[in-house]
Simulated scan of single mutants.
Amino acid sequence: MIMSETSPQTHIGRRLQHHFPDLGPQERRVADFILAHLEDLAVYSATDLSRLSGVSKATVTRLFRRLGYDDFKAVKAHARQLRHYGVPLASRSDALDDGVERFRRHAEREQENLRQCLDGLTPVLFDEVVRALDKAPAVAVIGYRNSYPVALHLRQQLLQARANVRLLPAPNQSLAEELVELEPGALVVLIGFRRRPRLFETLVEALAAREQRVLLIGDPTTAKYADRVTWRLECALETISAFDSYASAMSLVSLLANAMLHRRLAQGRSRIGEVAELYEALDELAP
């Protein structure tokens, strides 16, 4: 579907760029300021924009109406929604930070993401999930777009300690045949971080209809699927700038894989040893 430049889903930056040639000098001053501070738009007021860009409040109001917004409240809601759903919004102010200060802010944000992830885990929930990863006759891991590297890493970690862990679908293949072949009692681990493909919701519905056990790992936007999956684990992705961070997700993968290994320590150690011997026999890894 092709969206018009003023449809509700269209990024405000794209709207500004589309209308920029038709803007007057004062409106252009506001537009330039907004484009330079998109990440901060949700926290500004119309008065702030007027003052910081050096134009009248009426000019700010006129610009937003030209862009298709009823008022500035609609603009702020749009900006918050874009970031919530993962649209990268960057501010030039990030580039002005002192290096040490930037590192400090980054570390604090990462620590907060990890804290939120772990706070959402209870011992009972965690034990249930780890037991399922251990006891399921087969584990199918699915992740699209930005979720794919996390899914791939989870599959690789689990495969060190147990058999029959698959990453679905195979490259350039459809998913239906793979799901039909899943053993009774198999566990599907669905990785679903924001900006998911449209297929994702249909997949959740299909797995629920088949009464498939599903572990969903995603960001807070997956809350709407909670009643259709068996377990849901949440990872915060927020950063100090535009692009999401998956550090908490990778940490969760490590936590789950290690916990599963310790549930089957004897078998896991034996399998790890066999894999290591084959690495050597095949000369696959450098020293």
Rank of each mutant, 00 (worst) to 15 (best):
A206W: 08
Q160W: 09
A209L: 11
T202P: 13
P197C: 04
E112C: 11
P169A: 05
H153D: 11
A132H: 11
N172S: 13
G192E: 09
L125W: 06
P184E: 06
R102T: 02
D219M: 14
D134Q: 13
V188M: 08
L203D: 05
Q157A: 12
A151K: 02
N164T: 06
Q212H: 04
E181T: 13
E101P: 02
R131F: 15
A151C: 11
E181W: 15
T122R: 08
E110C: 07
R166S: 15
N164W: 13
R196K: 06
G218N: 12
A107T: 15
G143K: 02
T202E: 14
E110M: 05
L168V: 10
A186I: 10
D219E: 10
R213N: 15
S147G: 10
L179R: 12
L215N: 05
R131C: 10
A170Y: 08
F200K: 07
A206G: 11
V180E: 10
A209H: 13
L125S: 14
A132F: 07
E201Q: 04
R145D: 15
Q160N: 12
A170E: 05
I217E: 15
V188L: 02
R213D: 12
A209Y: 00
E211V: 14
L159K: 12
G192W: 04
A208N: 00
R166V: 08
R210E: 07
R213C: 12
I217M: 08
L182Y: 14
D134T: 14
